[in-house]
Design a protein around this nucleic acid. Structure first.
Lengths: 206, 206
DNA sequence: GGGATATTCATACGAACGTATGAATCAATC
DNA sequence: GATTGATTCATACGTTCGTATGAATATCCC
């Protein structure tokens, strides 16, 4: 018997993660998911009760670790700007190591449906971490004034947007941001851009 | 007779724009589109030949005007940084006046399929405009060194990402970025963030 | 006003969808 | 080794999908 058959439930979650990310909730059929998991059409109904329940399980397993990984970086040692650099780098790394995450997030936004709790929880958590750093930096004078929440959104936009737009950039511009050296340049650029966007410089209009 | 019945083709494009934006290509059924256009199931096949052809027509009519509107702003008078501010503001305005655009772009990226020519053309055009400004600013010393293409992507990320993430922000954070005063703050923030991310010195005129 | 053309409309087809059902098979306990 | 519960599997149901077809109706030109 095949080795992965040992845990059908796990195989379904993994196949679901890949296919939900690739084709969205509606676009990923139970037939395709069970086929990819080397399982049977009835397996999703049996193990999860419904397609939607499988989707929720997939999201829980994918989004929570992201927040957990950013947390120590954000509240660790270093100046606010240094910690912010770390968050951006870690964000990039995590998205690169888990390519399904940005896709799932994208599919979720595109669907326009009410976001599952895992997504909301993660978003609140991450923006909270960043806002805390920014407020701290504003207090010690290293970060310029401004709404911490909006600034956090702009910072997050760097790794998220640049990761999401990758396939389009490849097709429209012919640049492959997955290629390691280009990717390193991309991360360095994003860190610098975010830092420049935040840091308090000599003069600032208020 | 109903007044809109005068031009079925137009009504189909409009209904298609709304529903493709709202539900994606696969999610917007011909039945829903023709129903919304107060037309008949066969109308899409008759006027466009296929669903895909209607989709292409919708994208052409939506993306080309964006580039055309940004062009005079980018190549108009003013310093590079000032023109960049103008581009960001104009981008926000255009997205706000045409709420289907970010949705359509999002659906397109989410689908992961090869992007239609209208999308590719618009993306190339806009990034070309921004890169030109940035190169110019780097030559006159007002914009810091760096890959002009990556910098352009980071600038674009501000209006695009902040517009796309709006519904999620409302649900997860309880902030309504559509509300006029909040929206004005958002635009001002994005302009400042982009400028700070680009500018070589801390010079902040006005 | 009548004949040609353009457009609308009702209907049909095969395919794919999520889910339900019940039999077949496996695993563990006694 | 039989029994029991967990899991797998084949199959069926009703719905919706994109497209095709041909009749019905509207529009236009002479």
């Amino acid at each position: 018997m095949s080795p992965e058959r040992a845990n059908t439930r796990e195989a379904l979650v993994e196949a679901g993660r890949t296919l939900f990310a690739r084709h969205g909730y509606d676009g990923a059929s139970i037939r395709a998911i069970t086929r990819r998991a080397h399982s049977n059409l009835g397996a999703v109904t049996y193990h999860f009760g419904s397609k939607k329940a499988l989707y929720g399980t997939v999201l829980d397993g994918v989004f929570d670790p992201l927040r957990q990984r950013l947390e120590p970086v954000a509240s660790g040692p270093g100046s606010p700007l240094e910690r912010m650099d770390g968050v951006v780098r870690t964000f990039f790394s995590h998205l690169a190591e888990n390519p399904d995450i940005p896709q799932l997030l994208l599919q979720q936004i595109a669907a326009g449906r009410r976001a599952p709790t895992a997504v909301v929880r993660t978003m609140r958590g991450i923006l909270g971490l960043l806002s805390t750093i920014i407020v701290e930096g504003q207090q010690d004078g290293s970060i310029r004034p401004g709404d911490p929440l909006l600034m956090s959104l702009s910072v997050i936009a760097q790794p998220v947007h640049l990761t999401l737009v990758r396939p389009l950039a490849r097709q429209a511009l012919g640049i492959d941001l997955d290629e390691p050296s280009q990717r390193a340049d991309l991360v360095e650029h994003a860190v610098r851009f975010a830092r420049a966007g935040l840091s308090a410089t000599e003069s600032n209009p208020s």
